[in-house]
């Protein structure tokens, strides 16, 4: 269970998030959506403990989030953060040494699924395969919370599709909660349970995707547009 209670995050005088109240049940797939600059990444960084709120509280499983949340929260960011001279195998060994919940078996299955060769060096990977390896590393952790910031950013439709399928195949919703930001909403919609819509740092709405379809007869993108 995740709770944001009246969370405000300021960078200097600019408020990236304003008085946000959100609660996320475990075992769901949540899409945090909204325009560029609406506060999506800031919200995820607060969850991952890499930022602290200016006001309010970020709670996961009843405890205030600190950097130590990384023990049970796997976080994928938009940045490149792998040593380029590592091979994929060395990268996997490294993550295995850092996280108790890193599942080597799952990593092997994911590599196989993504058709990646473990002897390849990171610096020799195409952009699409860097996107895939980030997913491999993140989903190989049996962490209760998986937080993915823009996992599809800059990737072609084939890669996006393989990533979506890997999320269905390798995330166990009976034990894990998946939270992600993306602009590729149409593609991800079939696997989302809920969306949190942000606009100018505020939570505009939080709804179940099926409820949006049922109540408004709209896809999420149409519903978003009707909310702006």
């Amino acid at each position: 269970m995740i709770n944001l209670q009246q969370v405000t995050k300021k960078f200097g005088r600019f408020s990236a998030l304003k008085d946000c109240n959100v609660s996320i049940e475990s075992g769901k797939v949540i899409g945090v959506v909204g325009e560029n600059g609406s506060g999506k990444s800031t919200m995820l960084r607060l969850l991952a403990g890499s930022l602290r709120p200016t006001h309010g509280k970020v709670m996961i499983d009843g405890a205030v989030v600190t950097r130590k949340i990384s023990e049970k929260l796997a976080y994928l960011t938009d940045n490149n953060y792998f040593y380029p001279y590592f091979t994929i195998q060395q990268l996997i060994d490294f993550y295995h040494s850092q996280f108790n919940d890193f599942d080597r078996n799952k990593a092997q299955q994911l590599l196989h699924f993504m058709e990646l060769d473990s002897s390849t060096k990171i610096k020799h990977l195409s952009k699409g395969n860097v996107g895939r390896i980030k997913i491999v590393i993140t989903l190989s952790r049996n962490a209760p919370y998986l937080v993915l910031d823009e996992p599809f950013s800059g990737l072609d439709p084939m890669v996006r599709k393989s990533i979506i399928t890997s999320m269905i195949r390798f995330v166990d919703l009976s034990q894990q909660t998946l939270i992600l930001t993306t602009h590729e909403i149409n593609e991800i919609e079939p696997i989302l349970d809920e969306v949190i819509l942000l606009g100018s740092g505020e939570v505009v709405a939080q709804r179940s995707v099926e409820a949006i379809r049922d109540k408004y007869q709209m896809s999420v993108v149409d519903w978003m547009e009707s909310n702006y």
Binding site: T165, I168, P190, I191, D193
Partner: peptide
Amino acid sequence: IESGVNAN
């Protein structure tokens, strides 16, 4: 996996 939706 077959239908491309989540397990829930």
